[in-house]
């Protein structure tokens, strides 16, 4: 089943985005050897194109290979087949043009919040003074004033996530990957962070690829949602999300349009969730 977008929907998407292909995944397949003579196929012939400034969400059942896909897309893992293009250039290795935010918090526990935010700048040899100014500005924007000198263990889950996010923003990547970034957090914190991400995207217009197993989250945030099948993962279908922006994660789910879209995609996704549960 492939979703058909109405002409208005297509127009509204193109209206928002520049139409320029920022990031391309071409004919990507991946498998690994689980044991002698036994290969597991994780990804099969995946093609994704992401436009500049687009907010794309990829949804699939748990364990379908979404994280493997992101690891390949970020250059951490070499695919068995296929290629990744960033601005038309072949991506061969890790690049700082891509920022990666993972599910588990990966702040360095021995660094204070501000030192964590400065880390990426430190790696680029940005002078100390400038580093500090950039970090302080981001900390202020993220409502973390007064916590600059706190160590990660002194911060709440939501605060840590915000530090994690601004740490990536500090080095100004062109594309940001998020791998179920709010998976480990409680519902309220999640909604607050979704709100935060939306306002960030509204301001910076970074290209974002957001991976989640939560369909509601995907619809709330993204311009377009891609549904993946159970393993081996392929792209099952694609839906534009023609909901107006700015959106509020707290209210949007009661919007009849949201409910309609959610229902339609959910039937599509349900099959895959059932399959992966078997």
């Amino acid at each position: 089943m492939v979703a058909v977008s109405t002409p208005e929907q297509i127009l509204s998407i193109q209206d928002r985005n520049t139409g320029k292909n920022k990031f391309l995944v071409q004919n990507l397949s991946h498998s690994f050897n689980a044991a002698k003579d036994k290969t597991v196929e994780v990804l099969r012939n995946i093609n994704i194109s992401v436009e500049e400034h687009e907010f794309l969400a990829i949804v699939g059942p748990s364990g379908c290979g979404k994280s493997t896909l992101l690891n390949i897309m970020s250059g951490l893992l070499k695919p068995t087949q296929g290629q990744i293009l960033l601005d038309g250039e072949l991506l061969k290795d890790i690049t700082t043009r891509i920022g990666y935010i993972s599910q588990t918090d990966s702040l360095l526990p021995w660094r204070t919040a501000i030192a964590n935010v400065e880390l990426g700048l430190e790696l680029r040899d940005v002078p100390k003074k400038e580093r500090k100014n950039i970090a302080l500005k981001l900390i202020k924007q993220a409502d973390l004033n007064g916590f600059e000198k706190s160590y990660p263990y002194e911060l709440s889950g939501g605060m840590k996530k915000r530090v994690d996010i601004i740490r990536i923003l500090a080095v100004e990547p062109e594309v940001i990957f998020m791998d179920e970034p709010f998976g480990a957090l409680d519902v309220f914190t999640r909604e607050m962070l979704q709100d935060y991400i939306l306002s960030l995207w509204q301001k910076t217009r970074k290209t974002i690829i957001f991976v989640t197993h939560d369909l509601g989250e995907a619809i709330t945030l993204a311009d377009r949602v891609i549904i993946m099948t159970a393993r081996p993962a392929t792209i099952k279908s694609e839906y534009p999300i023609p909901l107006p922006r700015p959106r509020s994660p707290l209210d949007i789910r009661f919007d009849p349009k949201f409910i309609k879209i959610h229902k339609r995609i959910w039937y599509d996704l349900k099959e895959e969730v059932q399959k992966s549960g078997e």
């Binding site: 970020s74 951490l76 890790i94 690049t95 700082t96 891509i98 920022g99 990666y100 993972s102 588990t104 990966s106 360095l108 880390l119 990426g120 430190e122 790696l123 680029r124 740490r167 990536i168 080095v171």
Partner: peptide, 19 residues
Amino acid sequence: RLINAVRLMGASQFHITTK
């Protein structure tokens, strides 16, 4: 996961060791 996160931020082997 800490090493991976720092590598993705563009850290060299030397930086991974020291940081």
